[in-house]
Design a protein around this nucleic acid. Structure first.
Length: 599
RNA sequence: GGCUCCGUAGCAUAAUUGGAUAGUGCACCUGACUACGGAUCAGGAGGUUGGGGGUUCGAAUCUCUCCGGAGUCACCA
């Protein structure tokens, strides 16, 4: 069916033409939802047209309103407040919206992916392999997974990629500490998840390192010297050199410890419900980009210093000089990122976008990356997008791994589960289910609370996480939305028991104001997906769902469904309830959140 | 110091991208259940949108300038 906004928009252009003999650009038309305190459904802002009409805003609005009412059957009436033209749409239109949506089911609001769809790669998660995941990674994973779903719902082919940083000095630190202090410990013997075990030795390294620095300073060294020459740090560097030289024993240990970490990550990812289509390893990509840089030097885009190092001069763009190859010819992180970006666009030629879900501490890095790619002449440089998100802070400040103030991802998920179980048990709604079913529902609620809490905030913003108070189960929360879904399911189950079939049209029923309110929000689902997609912000979906659910709950409280004596009304409300449940499920799925049928 | 981002009620957040009297949740008061599921609903109180100037019919939104916070300016990733 044709969207009412489209009809209004077209008719408005005709109106301006007929009334004032002028043509207007479609983008000057502003159609918005009429605010609650005024009568009407749709509002046109007429200020942009008063100059054309050469009349007062009120008079212009009245003339346009009259025209629209005469030309659009579904517009029943209008009123004018200052420069705002409020249009009232007929109940039939809203009924049509509902049943049109119902017919589309779970596809409602989404744009189908076809063979012709453009491809977008979303890189997210990208962990280091020297320590377990924490709350900051949860924000990354949840955002990345969600935006991938949202882009897909908006009609793009999406490739979810994970670039695992499996090499470098950090993993050598863990390896070295394990060799020195580990006594052959394994995840099995230690009864510890692999990533936590490796993390334990990373911490152990740091402890030893700090001690050696103190010793050095006590022996009269400067702090800088002590840091640089601490024996354990020198050994770690030596281990990295061995790794780069392909030393068999080192490689073997590296493989072993990384595999422990992957087992651990796998469990965490599974519990979080995130997944990837492709996994890259830095050990296989870190040499990429070198040739491109050398070519850039030949072309004169880059320059070399006397010591042989190669640089990009970005001062003309207001930035700094950036090193791309060290004097010894080895790469830095930026070099590799240039190389992988080039590879990816080579592999998926017509990619519309390459999205990097990475924290805002790397804003500068991505700015530089894009600029260098542009200078190197890659036309697609414009299409890399840094989906930058803010840090997660705790009530007493930033999370610092060294100070032990990080919130561990596995611990947090377990805590959330316990909280959900405690609340659920108290309410006793799950009595009669098997322990497995009960546990599964607790987990759904726990995950829903955590993910929604993170996703409802705009990604760019720094967010505060209060372990004690922040994760609510009331108000604007995941469980609140899940609850509404479960409640509707309960009603639908009862309807089915009574053999009441969901209708496919409204019959002669004219829907009331409460029902229309809900349908109006239902009608905005698609634009909510589009906005979230365009702005790379799942928060729009979260806030949309909250609004939808609030409105439905209001309706639910005001109107009887199964107990309604008027059969027409009963059927209509069942259809409405069913579609709202569908959109809740569909929208939550975009956030990576599952919804239970009871809770 | 340079660049980037943020600042909305005690706390946490929204505002259809320049539109109407800035919404909402927690917490705090007051109401609604022998229940189509109360993890709900209705009402109350709480704001100079960090301060000040500018742009215009109209600014939380754009601009300038201060103030406060974060990040970054590595031959780390």
């Amino acid at each position: 069916m044709i969207h009412i906004d489209t009809i209004i928009s077209h008719t408005l252009i005709a109106a301006i033409s007929d009334l004032y003999s002028a043509s207007i650009e479609p983008n000057t038309i502003q159609i918005q939802e009429t605010r609650k305190e005024f009568v009407g459904d749709k509002t046109i802002v007429v200020f942009p047209f008063v100059r054309i009409a050469k009349k007062s805003p009120e008079q212009t609005a009245t003339e346009i309103g009259t025209y629209l009412q005469n030309h659009i059957p579904t517009i029943e009436s209008f009123n004018v407040v200052k420069g705002f033209l409020n249009l009232s749409v007929s109940a039939d239109y809203w009924s049509d919206v509902l049943f049109d949506a119902l017919a589309q089911g779970e596809e409602y609001g989404k744009t189908a992916v076809t063979n012709d769809s453009e491809t977008i790669m979303v890189e997210y998660s990208s962990p280091n392999t020297n320590k377990p995941l924490h709350l900051g990674h949860i924000r990354n994973n949840v955002l990345g997974y969600s935006i991938a779903n949202i882009l897909e719902a908006n009609g793009f082919k999406v490739i979810k990629a994970n670039l695992i940083n499996d090499r470098g000095i950090h993993i050598c630190k863990s390896m070295l500490a394990w060799k020195k202090f580990g006594n052959g410990e394994t995840p099995e013997t230690a009864q510890l998840k692999g990533d936590h075990l490796v993390g334990k030795y990373y911490v152990r390294f740091d402890k030893e390192y700090k001690m050696q620095i103190q010793n050095g300073i006590a022996a009269g060294e400067t702090e800088e010297y002590a840091k640089e020459h601490a024996p354990i740090m020198c050994q770690a560097r030596e281990l990295l050199r061995k790794w780069e030289a392909g030393d068999a024993e080192t490689i073997e240990l590296w493989n072993t410890m990384n595999s422990w970490v992957y087992d651990g990550f796998e469990q965490t990812y599974t519990r979080m419900g995130v997944s990837f289509d492709t996994i890259y390893y830095e050990s296989q990509t870190y040499l990429l980009g070198k040739q491109i840089v050398l070519d850039g030097l030949t072309n004169g885009v880059l320059y070399a210093k006397d010591d042989g190092s190669i640089w990009a001069d970005l001062t003309a763009e207001g930035l700094d000089h950036k090193l791309l190859l060290r004097p010894d010819g080895t790469s830095v992180y930026m070099t590799q990122d240039i190389g992988t970006a080039v590879e990816r666009f080579k592999e998926f030629g017509s990619m519309r976008e390459l999205v990097y879900v990475v924290g805002n501490e790397q804003n500068y890095h991505f700015q530089v990356l894009q600029l260098i790619l542009k200078k190197l002449g890659y036309s697609w440089a414009e299409r890399i997008y840094h989906m930058s998100y803010g840090m997660v802070e705790l009530p007493d400040g930033k999370m610092k791994s060294r100070e032990g103030t990080v919130v561990d991802a596995d611990d947090l998920m377990e805590d959330m589960n316990k909280t959900a179980a405690a609340i659920s048990t108290e309410l006793g709604k799950l009595d009669g289910l098997t322990p497995e079913e009960t546990h599964s529902i607790h987990e759904i609620i726990a995950q829903g609370a955590l993910k929604y809490f993170i996703l409802k905030v705009e990604p760019r913003k720094t967010m505060l996480f209060d372990p004690k108070e922040s994760i609510d189960f009331n108000g604007n929360t995941g469980p609140f939305i899940q609850y509404t879904h479960a409640r509707i399911c309960s009603v639908l189950r009862k309807a089915e028991e009574q053999s009441i079939a969901i209708p496919t049209n409204a019959g002669s029923y004219v829907c009331n104001a409460k029902e229309q309110e809900v349908i109006k929000i239902l009608a905005r689902y698609k634009e909510s997906i589009q906005l979230a997609s365009k702005e790379h912000a799942p928060s729009h979906i979260a806030n949309y769902l909250y609004e939808l659910v609030k409105s439905y709950n209001h309706f639910y409280h005001e109107c009887q469904i199964l107990n309604e004596q008027d059969t027409q009304a009963q059927l209509f409300r069942l259809a409405l309830s069913k579609q709202i449940a569908t959109v809740i499920k569909s929208g939550m799925q975009l956030l990576g959140i599952t919804v239970p049928e009871r809770m």
